[in-house]
Design a protein around this nucleic acid. Structure first.
Length: 683
RNA sequence: GCCCGCGUGGUGAAAUGGUAGACACUGGGGACUUAAAAUCCCUUGGCCGUAAGGCCGUGCCGGUUCAAGUCCGGCCGCGGGCACCA
């Protein structure tokens, strides 16, 4: 999906820029040059300062000799991580007294600051500040009274004082007032390319591509994960485990009764021999992030029993994954790691070149959600504890004032005490009355309803599939989950929805039974219509399934079931239709589909029968209904043969009595006939 | 703050620029029944009207078009991603 590509692109954060060195003036020994990186080298003549990160080697050096620098750097480190600092984003700096010479003019000196907003782990950890065209630099320059010379202005506009940094899109054309390369008026993109070329020609720095992708720290201090095959030896240091000893397997005799990593507490697992010197050594007890495993299982699955990670032949045969399905939460980490692994496995000879992009297609499905029900228990402590309840334990009532919920247990106890019999005909009324009483008294059994959220065990807003299957069967559960919402969207679980699905499947079975009882020689007038409807259903359901629009496929099946139950056709045609219905339902409801199939004399298993194909001739309607609009409003409709020439359609449309009435004699300015679609009369 | 996406009935939702609300849930009415459940039928965007019918309506304002939920511009609201990336 484009969205996922974009998220990954942003995460990788590729940028092209210029890296160059300033010559410093007044810096300590060994710091006579200061490397900076910029994506906007076209703004070099708008420079008014240079800034380094508090973690920059120069800052660290100054920190040791200057208490003022030490205090400032310490504050930056403290503030940098606090939520408040990030939110307010206040730009703080300390003038080091050092200056740098502008690369184009060695009489032009720029002050060097240590600034809290410069990151050490991106670029070189040092920047040149161009306040006119960078908002952070602008705020910084404003605060410390530095010059703000503009480099370019909006095309065709005069130079004006700036109230904020002027940062147009790089694709926008601007007019350079302090340019040095390329055209006077050009896009930012063109200017950057020209500036890099010009700087390289003058011997000032070089074009560099940077990424903001960060390292992946993959060790975890826990049991679940592949052990890191590394050994700690007192004499040899950190040594990789010998290949013949791989894989290192986890021990099974571990306990989780104490917090921490059980591998650290295991009596013997850590003990091993150093592969280098043969002396006693200790195994690494950190394990790998489970993302490591999920990054290449698809490749391993192509040869699950092989002694090597993959087998070239099998990998070439099975790869790639045709259709990957997962949640959007994996858009970046898991999917990016997988792409990285596939490339790495290709380089190390474990995957063919064709598999460096391991997934041909991705579908991100939504979640099943449910409301959260909560009460508060103040019996055990002063602070009322939150107690969550399963949907099953709560009875929901809808009233004019809205919905409210009551714990079933409390409600039924109450009714029991009052002597109500659950099988009595007035029990429902009693239940409502009791619930309203509980609500009025603000009873502790009244539940708090929080809007639908992802199902989570701790919030207890879960519905166990086992319960649904026990109540209605697996077919109903599958049918309902797919019926209402498109799969990429979240779906709210409602018990009434599951009930409705169950009712529908029951109707299908009743219909099947009725058709099964039809005398073999029965005839009806509706054969052609039913054959057409069947073909249409095959076409629409197939298309729906293939495009992941299961909800639309199911809507079609509802419609077709309705048509079939009202049809009056010959027994043979009815049987053909119900067997086709079974086949179309099969992916959603395999059990009932097989039952229908067997009942209606289908050969073998429905699941193994070839998928039905729609006869194209049956999909074409010979007559079409065309709506007629007058000035864009629908006023009438006519039925005409499918391939009637537009001129003739026009004549019939204008003769239509509703059209005549609406026109009321007014002249027709224009008439548009879209064949097979619509007619629009303009007056 | 930057980047992306989305806004349609009471609800879940349909709609290659071409009859907005398919299909379903809920609600309402009815049939069957001693009664209830189950089942079946009708109805269910809003307003006006006895009706026939009419008007309005896809977050808001404007534009393009014979025709806009759909395309374009600007707002508002919601959701997601990123976190000072020079």
């Amino acid at each position: 999906p484009e969205k996922v590509r974009l998220m990954q692109a942003n995460w990788i954060g590729k940028s092209r820029g210029l890296q160059f060195a300033f010559t410093t003036h007044g810096a300590p020994e060994g710091f006579d040059r200061l490397e900076v990186y910029t994506t906007r080298p076209d703004t070099l003549l708008g420079a008014s300062f240079a800034a380094i990160s508090p973690d920059h080697p120069l800052a660290k050096h100054l920190e040791r000799h200057d208490p003022k620098v030490a205090a400032f750097v310490a504050e930056c480190r403290r503030g940098g991580t606090s939520a408040e600092a990030i939110e307010t984003g206040e730009k703080l700096g300390l003038d080091t007294g050092i200056t740098v010479l502008h690369p184009f003019d060695d009489t032009w000196q720029l002050p060097v600051y240590i600034a809290n907003f410069v990151l050490m782990d991106y670029g070189t950890g040092a920047i040149f500040g161009c306040p006119a065209h960078d908002q952070r630099d602008f705020e910084f320059a404003t605060k410390y009274g530095l010059a703000i010379p503009p480099v370019f202005v909006a095309e065709g506009l005069p130079e004006m004082p700036l109230a904020e940094a002027y940062v147009p899109m790089k694709s926008e054309r601007v007019t350079y007032v302090r340019g040095f390369a390329g055209e006077a008026t050009q896009t930012g993109e063109a200017a950057v390319i020209a500036a890099i070329a010009e700087c390289e020609a003058r011997g000032i720095g070089r074009g560099v591509t940077n990424y903001r992708l960060r390292d992946w720290g993959l060790s975890r201090q826990r049991y679940w994960g592949c052990p890191i095959p590394v050994i700690h030896c007192d004499t040899c240091g950190v040594v990789p485990e010998a290949k013949e000893n791989l894989p290192i397997e986890l021990p099974y005799d571990v306990t989780f009764d104490k917090p921490g990593n059980p591998l650290d507490r295991h009596p013997t697992w850590r003990d091993c021999t150093c592969p280098k010197c043969g002396g006693p050594a200790r195994r690494e007890t950190d394990t790998m992030d489970t993302f490591v495993d999920s990054s290449w299982y698809y490749a391993r699955f192509t040869a699950p029993h092989a002694t090597t990670p993959t087998v070239a032949e099998d990998a070439a045969y099975w790869m790639n994954v045709d259709q990957y399905i997962g949640g959007i939460e994996h858009a970046i980490l898991h999917l990016l790691y997988s792409r990285f692994f596939a490339r790495a496995m290709h380089k190390t000879g474990h995957l063919p070149a064709s598999a460096i992009e391991p997934f041909n297609a991705l579908f991100t499905q939504g979640m099943v959600t449910h409301e959260i029900y909560m009460t508060r228990d103040s019996s055990k402590s002063i602070i009322a504890k939150r107690v969550y309840h399963l949907p099953d334990e709560v009875e929901i009532f809808s009233t004019e004032e809205g919905r409210f919920g009551v714990l079933k247990l409390a409600l039924y106890d109450l009714l029991n005490l009052a002597g109500h019999d659950p099988s009595a005909s007035n029990f429902d009324a009693a239940k409502h009355f009791a619930a309203l009483e509980l609500k009025k008294n603000a009873s502790p059994f009244l539940v708090d309803i929080t809007p639908s959220a992802k199902m989570s065990k701790s919030k207890k807003n879960v519905v166990d599939p086992k319960d649904i299957i026990a109540a209605y069967g697996a077919d109903t559960a599958r049918w309902f989950v797919m019926s209402d919402s498109p799969p990429e969207r979240d779906v709210e679980w409602t018990s009434s929805g599951a009930e409705a699905a169950f009712k529908h499947l029951s109707r299908v079975w009743t219909l099947c039974d009725r058709i099964g009882q039809m005398p073999a020689n029965h005839n009806g007038e509706g054969d052609e219509a039913l054959l057409r409807a069947t073909a249409r259903a095959v076409h629409d359901v197939t298309h729906g399934i293939e495009s992941f629009a299961f909800n639309k496929a199911i809507a079609t099946l509802y419609g077709f079931t309705n048509t079939l139950s009202k049809a009056n056709a010959s027994t043979a045609t009815m049987k053909h239709a119900i067997r086709t219905l079974a086949q179309l339902m099969q992916p959603m409801t395999p059990h009932i589909a097989e039952s229908i199939w067997a009942y209606q004399g289908g050969a073998g298993l429905c699941a193994q029968a070839p998928w039905p194909k729609a006869d194209p001739a049956l999909l074409i309607d010979n007559t079409v209904t065309l709506p007629i609009q007058i000035n864009g409003k629908r006023r009438a409709e006519i039925s005409v043969p499918k391939d009637m020439p537009a001129a003739e359609v026009e004549k019939i449309a204008l003769a239509d009595e509703d059209v005549v009435r609406f026109l009321a004699g007014q002249p027709v300015k224009k008439i548009i006939v879209v064949p097979g679609r619509i007619i629009n009369v303009v007056i």
